[in-house]
């Protein structure tokens, strides 16, 4: 297990470099947007990765409430944290792409706004974990994660009705996309998934170690070494 980590890290680094080359050099230049469009290979995979991580967070939270497994709770913390990071990447690369292409940094359309609200919900989830002094923070956090996840479809629909004018997204918007671009996109997604997996893995180990240290410290307080 310990040896697997550096190997996986190395593979991720290679895959990321290859994906970078594919995105910046090998992928065809988009006709109307030009080179700016290449941000697409970072923007979209980050978004998919973030959504996947938030989904795992929801499943882990439900699992924690059913089984009370501390591992499920650690997975929930880790996926929420890394998910927020990827979601932040989405929210930062979005305006960078929108400004030259649409001429505006931000528009209150359904995808942008839903992603922003999603980001807010998971930030408040992390705040709860950070500020809670309860001994059962995992239970509170899991309840919050479930309410947050229930909110997502409602957020999406409410904003969809609120703002239906949307510059058709590149994927699923009926627009045709060069098969070569698809290929590069999927390679980048794979690379980002590996990268996310890598961070989650090391963060998960850190979380488990941290808990072991806390437990050991608590034991130490209960029975000091001198009395043993």
């Amino acid at each position: 297990m310990k040896r697997a980590f550096p190997i996986f890290a190395l593979l991720t680094a290679i895959l990321l470099s290859y994906a970078l080359y594919e995105a910046l050099v090998a992928a065809p230049t988009e006709q109307t947007m030009g080179n700016v469009q290449r941000i697409f290979y970072y923007h979209v995979p980050s978004a998919w990765t973030a959504f996947l991580l938030f989904t795992i967070n929801f499943v882990a939270s439900v699992w924690y409430l059913i089984r009370r497994s501390p591992h499920a709770d650690a997975v929930a913390v880790v996926t929420a944290e890394v998910g927020v990071v990827f979601c932040t990447v989405v929210l930062l690369t979005g305006p960078l792409w929108a400004r030259p292409v649409w001429g505006i940094w931000w528009t209150w359309d359904v995808r942008l706004t839903s992603t922003l609200v999603l980001w807010l919900i998971y930030i408040s989830y992390l705040m709860l974990r950070r500020f809670s002094t309860s001994g059962q923070t995992p239970v509170l956090a899991a309840a919050m994660a479930i309410l947050g996840a229930l909110d997502v479809p409602l957020v999406y629909f409410s904003i969809w009705i609120f703002r239906t004018q949307h510059p058709q997204p590149v994927i699923g918007g009926g627009g045709s996309i060069d098969p070569r671009m698809w290929h590069v996109l999927l390679i980048n997604w794979a690379a980002f998934l590996c990268f996310a997996g890598l961070i989650c893995w090391s963060r998960y180990r850190l979380e488990i170690l941290q808990r072991e240290v806390e437990e050991a410290q608590a034991l130490e307080t209960l029975e000091p070494r001198s009395s043993r």
Binding site: I121, F157, I159
Partner: peptide, 25 residues
Amino acid sequence: MSLRARSREIMLPLLLFPVTIPALL
């Protein structure tokens, strides 16, 4: 939920507002 949190009074709006967005809209 925020009863057992540090700075409880500020915790409630931090949790409540994001989730309330669809209702408010």
